[in-house]
């Protein structure tokens, strides 16, 4: 590289452009009436698998969760049902409202964290590990009680900074590929990435059965997959960044019907 003012002058615009790259945040949000669930892009057979409870592999997790709901746990010897009664009424619409603000934590908690708070505080039981069979089962069972209900993030001003942080993370370029979530899921939604339609990233059906996983998994597992694809450092399960992303994504999907347990490729 030559030195001096002249070369700097020639270089400056390019470097300025580089600097701008770091600052630029993506992407116009998808207009509410253009939003679509990933379900809309499923093949006929995968749709049928989700629609038929006897064929939907996620329903096996739901059945396990139903058993856990009434099983006594922890040194309190108490089941979920002992406090909450019949989940079909008490849990209806609940998963559609999470993440919700937890005053004690001073931040939003997702439905898995809410379950573990109950285990700790009410049942005096050990927390379920993230992505464990029991956690997926109980959150799938609770999620099912909201199936068909519109996603309804709480109108709670305390959530706003966390939702904003989630939006910032969503729009921040990261990883070796230097992409933000919004580059694919907003700007290029419906286009084909290596031949596969890019969904709009509405978390309508978690936990869900993913054919690629051959198992049920949480939204955080899906987020981790995307980060690995971007060659970005992923977060530990339960990390504040994930919960903030969930808080933003659920708000972004507000009003869309819950599908838990969904099926996706």
């Amino acid at each position: 590289m030559t030195s001096g003012w002249a070369s700097l002058r020639r270089l400056a615009p390019a470097v300025f452009v580089l600097a701008a790259t770091a600052i630029v945040t993506a992407s116009a949000e998808i207009p509410l009436n253009e939003r679509r669930s990933g379900y809309a892009d499923l093949g006929r057979e995968t749709k049928a698998m989700q629609d038929d409870d006897t064929a939907n592999p996620g329903m096996l997790a739901v059945l396990d969760g139903e058993a856990l709901w009434s099983a006594k746990a922890g040194s309190a010897g108490r089941s979920c049902a002992d406090c909450h009664g019949d989940a079909r009424t008490s849990m209806k619409g609940v998963a559609a409202r999470y993440p919700a603000f937890d005053a004690k934590a001073g931040r939003p908690v997702n439905i898995e964290q809410r379950i573990n708070l109950c285990r700790d505080e009410r049942q005096q039981a050990k927390p379920f590990a993230y992505e464990s069979r029991d956690m997926l089962a109980l959150s799938a069972f609770v999620g099912l009680q909201s199936r068909g209900q519109p996603i309804a993030p709480p109108d709670d001003a305390r959530l706003q900074p966390f939702r904003d942080a989630g939006r910032d993370t969503y729009n921040r370029r990261q990883g070796q590929l230097n992409l933000a979530c919004g580059h694919c899921h907003d700007d290029n939604r419906g286009q084909r990435l290596a031949g596969i339609v890019i969904p709009q990233a509405h978390p309508t059906g978690y936990p869900l059965y993913r054919l690629e996983w051959q198992s049920v998994g949480s939204l955080q597992r899906r987020l981790r997959n995307c980060l690995i694809g971007m060659r970005a450092e992923h977060y530990a399960y339960g990390a504040p960044e994930y919960v903030e992303l969930e808080t933003y994504l659920m708000w972004r999907a507000r009003g869309m019907p819950m599908e838990t347990p969904a099926v996706r490729p």
Partner: peptide
Amino acid sequence: SRLNPATIMPSYYRVDGLTRVAP
């Protein structure tokens, strides 16, 4: 990105100015 800061094309021969690159 030197030509279009908004591009989604990764920089295939650059290691600086990136965020949270996996180890």
